[in-house]
Design a protein around this nucleic acid. Structure first.
Lengths: 123, 123
DNA sequence: CAGACATAGTACGACTGTCGTAGTACGTTA
DNA sequence: TAACGTACTACGACAGTCGTACTATGTCTG
């Protein structure tokens, strides 16, 4: 089975997280479930990776945290939510543009296996 | 200007190098020029990254090195050439498959900026 | 012939993001 | 009351990349 290696995704964990925060503020556990869902279980972000991304991105000013109750009645344990900032939105857009470029470049080095024939000799 | 960050390309330096070695054996300097050329100068691999990739991939059995003269007359300084192995070819093909998957997944988190309109409210 | 520049690397230490492991603590369900 | 889901935090290890610096030969130009 083909698996996505962490080295490959490395530059895009932050982008994935931000893409979810573009819609609305959210928190760790929910975001990790979202990523799993959106990727059709093809990618599951590690907890430690996720939370260290929060720390980093807050330090960089891409997100802001606030603590809130899970529901309006104030039941349940409080959670740390994250909200994307304007700077985060810009960063996200930049990463999207970067992705387009990266994709184009990497693709030039990739061979698609359309035919797994005995191997044609073309030279 | 959009630039490809090293974190993004991280998982694909080896793949790029191998894609060049798929054609014929080559050596460091030449490979770095090839990558620059193929990517239309959009990506330039750092020397240290390249040579440490050689060490790693030789250790992993993906490539083999041999020292040879630059031309048949034996002129010039000898170079260290690298040749891809069968194992390297398999690894390359696996990475190509992985790329297709990664692309699909990342793309779900990417917003293409086709319209930079005032932002439509759809909900 | 000197100096610049291209070629062809090696060595070393720093840094960053990811990951394994482990532990805490509350809530809910059986 | 035990298991499981939720919601994290702490810490240290690791791998790949990068900056910097250094070596050394070959070639071209004034």
């Amino acid at each position: 089975m083909v698996e996505i290696s962490s080295d490959v995704i490395r530059g895009y964990n932050d982008t994935m997280i931000l893409s979810i925060l573009m819609k609305e503020p959210s928190y760790g556990y929910e975001i990790s479930k979202q990523i799993k869902l959106i990727s059709s279980e093809k990618y599951v972000i590690k907890e430690t990776t996720l939370y260290s991304a929060f720390t980093r991105m807050e330090k960089n000013g891409y997100i802001e945290s606030f603590v809130a109750d899970p529901d309006p009645e104030g039941n349940g344990k409080k959670r740390t939510y994250y909200r994307i900032t304007d700077s985060g939105r810009n960063y996200y857009r930049d990463k999207c543009a970067e992705w387009e470029l990266t994709k184009e470049v990497v693709e030039r080095f990739i061979q698609k296996e359309e035919n797994t024939l005995p191997q044609a000799n073309e030279e």
